[in-house]
Design a protein around this nucleic acid. Sequence first.
DNA 1: AATAAAATTTAGATTAGTCTAAATTTATTA
DNA 2: TAATAAATTTAGACTAATCTAAATTTTATT
Lengths: 216, 216
Amino acid sequence: MNTLAEENYLKSIYHLSLNAENVSTNQLAALLNTKASSVTDMLKKLADKELINYTPYQGVTLTPPGEKIAINIIRKHRLWEFFLVEKLNFKWDEVHEMAEEMEHISSNELIDRLDKFMGYPKYDPHGDPIPDCDGKIKVHDLKPVSAIEINESGIICGVRDHSAGFLQYLEKQGLTIGKKIKVEDIIEFDRSMVLQLETKTVQISREVANNLLITL
Amino acid sequence: MNTLAEENYLKSIYHLSLNAENVSTNQLAALLNTKASSVTDMLKKLADKELINYTPYQGVTLTPPGEKIAINIIRKHRLWEFFLVEKLNFKWDEVHEMAEEMEHISSNELIDRLDKFMGYPKYDPHGDPIPDCDGKIKVHDLKPVSAIEINESGIICGVRDHSAGFLQYLEKQGLTIGKKIKVEDIIEFDRSMVLQLETKTVQISREVANNLLITL
DNA sequence: AATAAAATTTAGATTAGTCTAAATTTATTA
DNA sequence: TAATAAATTTAGACTAATCTAAATTTTATT
C-alpha cells in the first residue's frame, strides 16, 4: 500500500485538478502546508510509482491508478464524516480533522460495510458527493448564490469554503444544507445579498454568497 | 501528541507488564516484530519523555503518564473492535488488524461518543474488558478451562490466544463467549478434555483448554 | 570464581519525509 | 527581446525509526 504522505498528496492533487488542468508545485505546497522543494521530491516518488504524470516545471496530473486511490480516500473521508455527524452527533464544522485521520484506515471491506450500515448516503454533511465503491461520483452541478438574480430561488446543497468558521457562521444564520432561499434584494454598493429564508430574511456578503452553493 | 511507533511501544509494554514486573528488550522486540537494538533506541526516547522507567539492561516499567496513554489506546482498540462486530457485523476473528489502525485515531471526544453510541459496552468481542473514559479497567478474574475438574462447569468469558486461527476453531466448535460448559471427562493420556456444551459434547486438547477462559 | 552463553547496548548506516539555500527554468514586462 | 521576477528544482542536511555488526553487560554453568 501507500504511505500516509503519498495518500495525502494524491488526494490534494485530485482536489486541485478540479480547478486546473495541471496542478503546480506551489499549489500543492500551499495546500499541504509544506515547501515547494518537499513537493518536488514527493512528485518524483509518485511519478516513479506511475501514480502521476510529472514533467518538471510543468505540473502534474493523476494517472488512472492515482486517481482511483485519490477517489477512494475521498470516499472514506466523506463516509466517516457522515458517520460522525449522523451517528455520533457531531456538528458539520467539527468533523473534518477527525476524518482526515480516519480516511487512512486501509480496509475497503470496512468502508463498504460502513457505507451499508448508514444506508448508502449520497452526500456528506457539507453536501459533497460520496463516491460509490466503484469510484463513481455523482456530479450535480451547483452554482453559488452570487450567480442568481433577484427573485430567483434555490436550495442550499453545498459549500465552497469548508472552514469551521464559515460553517459555524452559516449554522448561526440558519443557512444549512436543504434549506430553501430566495434572493430578495442585492445591495448595489457592495453587492451583498438579502435572502428570504423560511420566515425571516438574512443579509449575506458577496464573499459568503460566492461560497454558498445551491441547486435551482 | 505521540507518534504511532511510540503508542505501539507503550501499548506493548503495558500488555507485557501484566505477566512480568519488568519488561525486557527482547520481549518487546519479539512482540513488535523488530530488533532489540531498535527497541533500545525507542526506550531511550520514551524514557526522555518520562513515559517509562528505564535502567539499561534491567528492562522497563510504565510511568503513570505512560500507563495512561497505553490504557487509552487499549480502550480505543477494544471499542472499535466492539463497533466492528456489533454494528458492522464482522466476525470476532476479523477485527484485530483493523482495530490496530483505528486505535491511533487521536480524538478522545470521538471515542467517548462512540462509547455512548454503543451503550457503554463492558467487554470487547473477545471478552477483554474495555477501560472506561477515566482509564479504569474492570478486572474479572478468569481461569482457563484446564484449571477445573470433572463435573465442574463455567461460562466462557475470554480467550488467552487471540489469533484468528484459534478464534475460528472455537467458533466452529461453538465455544463462543457466553456459552456454558461442563467438564465431562479428562483423558488421562494427553489430558485433553471432554466438555458438555448445550446438547452436544466437544473434545478439546489441553492446549485449547489452556487458552479458553471461564468464570465459575 | 572463571568462563561461556544470552541479553542488551553502541556504533554506524539506511529510508521516508522534510527543510534551507542555491541554482535553474519559465513567465512577465519594460 | 533582454532583463527581471516568479516558480521550480537541485544540493546538502536533519529527524524518526529502523537495521546489521560489534562491543558490552548480565546470567548461567561448570
